[in-house]
Amino acid sequence: MEAQEAMISVNNVDKFYGTFQALTDVSLTVQQGERVVICGPSGSGKSTLIRCFNGLEFHSSGSIRIDGIEVEEDSKDLRRLRQEVGMVFQQFNLFPHLTILENLTIGPMKVQKIGKSEAEARARKYLERVHIPEQADKYPGQLSGGQQQRVAIARSLCMETRIMLFDEPTSALDPEMINEVLDVMVELADTGITMVCVTHEMGFARKVADTMVFMESGKIVEVSPPEKFFTNPESERCRMFLNQILEH
């Protein structure tokens, strides 16, 4: 009997930038609906790893399979893959020349080729979900950072992907705006979508994570459920890291 294939399976992945090794022998499995939080010091390869999941970067060796699609450079499946995987960036990366509504509809209309009215209905639904339906006709520059990041989340949701990647979604935000974004992410976690978040927000991690991953120097050091991770981590490195960020 064949077990259901994992949503994300990473096997022995190495990634080099020139001679610098960004990822070393990384293996990770994420099941459908699983919520994974990846943490670790900066430069540990967290972002690189999830950027390899939707082909913004490409691994040098090993294999990455996302929902049955092999991630490879110049692959014809790359666009299909990206339609399965949404991504939210640290710097939001909203399209400044388009209104909020257009930011949300351009993907569905141009990539998925759905009609304008359907795309707009979908966009409004997801704007509602991130609690800013009233901003639809503004431009990104007119919104606060927190609002922009929520729009970015809605933009990814509009593609109705099965997997969402978050690359330090709150790191560029002013402290008072972090919670509004995290609240949206917590609500999102309850919908059953597969989530992989790179974040230092440990409160959020405790609340939603099924699995915690700790990375350092391009290696996965520890993978454990949050109860164990926060109370009794196996590795000394991980314990030190947690002490540092949980201190205050």
């Binding site: 991504m87 990366n93 399209f95 998925q112």
Partner: peptide, 27 residues
């Protein structure tokens, strides 16, 4: 045009042509 714009376009599944036409060139 910032690199993030291209990445965002690609991450919602746009082809290189679409990325250029709808995102990069207008800006």
């Amino acid at each position: 045009v910032p690199k993030g714009q291209r990445e965002a376009a690609r991450s919602i599944g746009m082809s290189r042509g679409q990325e250029l036409r709808y995102i990069v060139l207008p800006q």
